[in-house]
Design a protein around this nucleic acid. Sequence first.
DNA 1: ATGCGGACCTGTTAGC
DNA 2: TGCTAACAGGTCCGCA
Length: 276
Amino acid sequence: MPELPEVETTRRGIAPHVEGREIGEVIVRQSRLRVPVPADLGERLVGSRIGTLARRAKYLLLPVSGGDAGEATLLCHLGMSGSLRIVRIGELPGKHDHLDLVLDDGGILRYHDPRRFGFVDWLAGDAERDSRLSRLGPEPLSEAFDGERLYRLSRGRRLAVKPFLMDNAVVVGVGNIYASEALFMAGIDPRRAAGRISLARYERLAAAAKEVLAAAITQGGTTLRDFVGGTGEPGYFKQRLNVYGRHGQPCRHCGDELRLITLGQRASVYCPHCQT
DNA sequence: ATGCGGACCTGTTAGC
DNA sequence: TGCTAACAGGTCCGCA
């Protein structure tokens, strides 16, 4: 399940193989993704050249220029089961390999997504003006995200702190896993009303979110080669998780049993002793 | 404005 | 053992 660290890992993994390449052919096998693949994607892309890959939140942006459409951006989201990898031309597509960008050096950028929660969309002109990007909060690893921001935006809000932290207008890229882990690291009960948490605690929470995301990106680097080589699933960050997916098991700090609740329709695991 | 619930999709897991 | 139901996840939309 791609969270921000895996999207960043994907960007770093595919960038050297696609940047500067010209798109020779576009093959769409399944256009019914969460956002339908534009019917004329191939016409627009063939003959254009890929620029420098960027990531914003969990979106990947592939700038393209030349060809029929001038300057534009491919906006890609991996949803929860999507992946992008580089394969050699001639490698047969498997089930759920929905889209190929055939490059001019014999490589193919192949989009795979069993649950089809992701998408590949076309943005003409300035990508930043797209509504999916324009309302996003700051990147979690940027200086713009800190405890003071969490404190300021949460005043007066009764929403539980966990869904508050997962709100993309507050900070992007903190999904269920990392929100759970950051709250554990900061010792904050995920059910606590966001508006009733002190600045000092929010500073700990922001620091924890940065730490867990940065560590996972480093870990993602380990799976990078597997990923680009195009084989299996990443081993991911699982062995480092303290609470996510560990309900019923003992807290690594105090030994108490980790508890599972639902918050904002999301499974939330926390330690009733360490998180208050 | 805020917060909540539903929809999207299908492979995997839990439960009968 | 075989089946079905629940679950997982991010984002957007609609309603109170």
